[in-house]
Write a protein that binds this DNA or RNA. Structure first.
Length: 470
RNA sequence: CGGGGCGUGGUGCAGGGGUAGCACGCCACUUUUGGGAAGUGGAGGUCGCAGGUUCGAAUCCUGCCGCCCCGACCA
């Protein structure tokens, strides 16, 4: 194709450019990398196989850590009596606007409407009240993997959908202190550790302001990360519920002195929103860049052409990789142009590509392409497995370092709300929490920024992290 | 709930009273194949729904439905 001057017209980019149109870029990546698409009901999401594979990897990593804290998985019903929601005043006030309510069933109007769970505090605590009798029943540590529905007016795939997948943990403890320690343990050992080690995304951890706190909680702890456009995304929250639900649902136990006491509780969750974070924290103009540890496919061996025994050789390399513990697949679709296949794997963010063609094989080599930096190197066939393994390890580290440098480089120290607001154009502001009194937080909210979390600095003074957020 | 816009092959769009079109995608064959392949031949649409006007409606009129965007609202 040529333009009026006769010069070749530039090929249109596959994705809108991140720098020009970040939301547009995000939509393009989610579609072209085949992660998800919109469902027929507004706000619902079809998670496609590659997107779901990412979720499954994330589930494995979270589940492992959740179980390491002593929690057990269980499952509670999707449908909850509407009256349950009303038992805790702040909780129902917080969730009422987002509820999906079922009024009919079996062809008849229901006597009591049931709600589709927006979260399961109420139904689980109904069970806890029956399960917990004495201090020997505590702590009770339960997790469930489930879908929840919160009616959203402005949905965005993964980031904010009406139905989403998550895990929600619910625990009961004998003392406030024990609940406090457990909530923080979940925050750091489950959420922060998974997000930083597996997703290679650095986080800021802290406490939510009263305004941002979970409906019904005493304290909400959060992990916040910075996306490539400088906006914040909440990665996971852990709540200290105090005795609010214990009193509402009458969850009591007999302590070692024979006294009846209410339990102290926590709840905590992380959702498919983390997939959105993965996209926005690492993706570039060529598509996703998936950190190797979370990648469903860590290496793809591309058979460039079909000549001679190259197909067998490529297959042998692939099975060697798999045997060495690398999640590797073989792309032997020689009928599809090489360039198209390269672009496809780039879009999907596969960390390492191994190109196997006549040129390489004649030289006893393969070409190794690293997605995180687009570098192509020739390596001897004999050391291919080792090279892939070290490339994967390097990619994991470099993606984290890059994200960490971006975040720390874009946290501006501010002493008042005006400079903090200015800083949120490009990143986060760190501002003394004292500036939030007298309507400071509302002033920021009215201008599109919010207080992401509160945390103590080296001197013990409380600082706030202010940002624009998803 | 206010303001604006759009409903036409799988996707994205054009057409605006007289045979339903284009691009991409899809299927087949051939030639290709190292960074988005090309040629040839095919398949695929009761033009959102219901009325109305007309010899004739995708097109004009009325009503309805759905979706999108911007506000407001919100983990």
């Amino acid at each position: 194709m040529t333009d009026a001057t006769g010069a070749a017209a530039p090929k249109p980019t596959i994705l809108r450019r991140q720098r020009n149109d970040f939301p547009g870029w995000y939509q393009d990546v989610v579609a072209k990398a085949e992660l998800a698409e919109n469902g027929p009901v507004r706000g619902t999401m079809v998670i496609r196989p590659y997107g779901y594979a990412l979720w499954e990897r994330l589930q494995q990593e979270l589940d492992l850590r959740i179980k390491a804290t002593g929690a057990q998985n269980a499952y509670f019903p999707l449908l909850i009596p509407e009256s349950y929601l009303h038992r805790e005043a702040q909780h129902v006030a917080g969730f009422s606007p987002e509820l999906a309510v079922v009024t009919h069933g079996g062809g008849k109007k229901l006597e009591e409407p049931v709600v589709v769970r927006p979260t399961s505090e109420t139904i689980i605590n109904g069970c806890f009240a029956r399960w917990i009798h004495g201090h020997r029943d505590l702590p009770l540590l339960i997790n469930q993997w489930a879908n929840v529905v919160r009616w959203e007016l402005r949905p965005r795939l993964f980031l904010r959908t009406t139905e989403f997948l998550w895990q929600e943990g619910h625990t009961a403890h004998a003392s406030e202190q024990e609940a406090h320690v457990y909530a923080l343990r979940i925050l750091t050992e489950v959420y922060q550790d998974t997000v930083e080690k597996e997703l290679a995304i650095p986080v800021v951890t802290g406490r939510k302001t009263d305004k941002e706190r979970f409906a019904g909680a005493v304290t909400t702890w959060t992990c916040e990360s910075m996306m490539r456009d400088g906006k914040a995304l909440q990665m996971g929250t852990s709540h200290e519920l105090g005795q609010n639900f214990a009193k509402a649902f009458d969850i009591t136990f007999t302590d070692s002195t024979g006294q009846q006491r209410h339990v102290w509780q926590t709840s905590w969750g992380a959702s498919t929103r983390l997939i959105g974070a993965l996209v926005m924290a690492h993706g570039d103009d060529a598509g996703l860049r998936i950190p190797p540890r979370i990648a469903p496919v860590q290496a793809v061996v591309i058979l460039v052409r079909g000549e001679g025994d190259s197909a067998d050789r490529a297959e042998a390399i692939t099975s060697d990789l798999v045997r060495a513990g690398v999640r590797a697949i073989l792309d032997r679709r020689i009928g599809i142009p090489f360039g198209r296949r390269s672009i496809e794997w780039e879009l999907k963010g596969i960390p390492v590509r191994l190109e196997v063609g006549p040129r390489e094989l004649a030289a006893g080599q393969v070409s190794l392409v690293e997605r995180h930096c687009s570098r192509k190197t020739s390596i001897p066939l004999a050391s291919a497995i080792g090279s892939v393994s070290s490339a994967l390890a390097t990619a994991q580290e470099l993606l984290f370092d890059e994200a960490r440098e971006r975040m720390t480089g874009r946290i501006v120290v501010a002493s008042d709300v005006e400079t903090a607001l200015e800083a949120t154009q490009a990143g986060f502001a760190k501002m003394p929490a004292s500036q939030l009194t007298d309507g400071g937080e509302e002033w920021l909210n009215a201008r599109g920024a919010s207080v992401r979390c509160l945390l103590p600095d080296e001197t013990g003074a409380v600082q706030s992290i202010v940002a624009r957020a998803y």
